[in-house]
Design a protein around this nucleic acid. Structure first.
Lengths: 197, 197
DNA sequence: TATGCTGATTAACATAGGTTAAAAAGCAAA
DNA sequence: TTTGCTTTTTAACCTATGTTAATCAGCATA
């Protein structure tokens, strides 16, 4: 917990030290307080964000003002609206800070420039995208095949830390159920003697 | 409808003619009859497939033998289990031909080699992945926020051709409902005077 | 310590969609 | 054309989850 972008480049992407310095020249950073926004619906998403510390959330409102959580991003995760970022369209999503958060800002040309600097970066960057696709596919599988209880159990297993860091109603909105629904699921599990963590 | 890989390279990816020829050297092709498999659960997915003609489906069985459709792939689409392909694990998915299909086989080293041959290919390849992420995210939004009817209407709008080419029970399994459920949705829509196509 | 505010729980009731079973409709082979 | 198999539809009934509304718990601030 707490993972700088520099460490990410060195340890995960295996970028050699000189090139790390070069790539770090390309980025800037920003601090956001809990509750503040990095992206608001209607605006263009100018950056992909890398979370060094803290927790972000990508979500949208439906016509009735109900929120749906698309993604959580804790330390060392990337988050952004690729739709808006890539095609310069105004976004339908919001990105808020669930905790005080420090992010690295990656502008439009970042991936290309960094890829030219380091082949290892290029490979790792692609790997991350592939991984993202895997996760999304798994989530779709669960949504079309599993009950609310099964989805919650999977969430607990996959993101045990988020369970403590995000309020329950947000987790419910990620799972595609209501807060009351999640509360009921948890009560049923408690009856069956399930203990998280 | 009907779109060769060569045309894809030339017209979509903007690869120049000499390089098209070079890239074509890297690939092979295969014909599959309707109902036959390109990937079976338990085996490793050795290729990403590009559909030149026909229609494929990526799906899985749950414990009760019920099928869930993860993706359809008509002409000019890519399909494969990236999980298995990328990490050399045995796959949990199946890929079947819904129609007689002709596919281009892209082996593990294809993307790297082709990217070295053509920068345009590299860019377009990344664009495709980005696009895939967008689609998956949209599908998740729908699954957590929309009713069966809304999801079906979105499907009709987004993939009108698949409506005619895939049996209804497969579409139901893609939407995360039962065939009976989809039949009911269609009846309700008919009452409300909805006409597809 | 009182006063809000936000989040979590509970309970009663409503409903979308699942389940089961059967009938109907298509379609292909004999 | 009959037979058999697959797909779609229909209907009765059931259940998971939504809805509404109220209470409760935690936490911050006056």
């Amino acid at each position: 917990m707490e993972y700088t972008f520099r460490q990410f480049l060195e340890e995960k992407a295996n970028v050699v030290s000189d090139q790390v310095a070069e790539i770090m020249e390309l980025v800037s950073f920003q601090e956001v307080k809990k509750g503040e926004s990095l992206l608001e619906a209607g605006k263009v998403c100018d950056y992909i964000f890398f979370v060094e510390k803290g927790l972000l959330r990508l979500f949208l409102f439906n016509e009735d003002g109900v929120e749906y959580t698309i993604q959580f991003a804790p330390e060392s995760w990337f988050i952004g609206d690729r739709d808006s970022f890539y095609f310069n369209q105004s976004s339908i999503y919001n990105i808020d800070a669930i905790e005080d958060t420090r992010v690295i800002l990656l502008a439009k040309d970042f991936a290309n420039k960094a890829s030219e600097i380091s082949a290892n970066f290029r490979n790792y960057n692609e790997f991350i995208l592939q991984n993202h696709v895997r996760q999304l596919q798994k989530r779709i599988s669960l949504l079309i095949s599993a009950s609310a209880e099964e989805r919650y159990l999977d969430f607990v297993k996959t993101y045990p830390d988020l369970l403590l860091r995000a309020p329950q109603w947000m987790i419910a909105s990620y799972l595609g159920i209501t807060p009351q629904g999640l509360s009921r699921v948890r009560r049923e599990l408690a009856k069956k003697n399930f203990k998280p963590g």
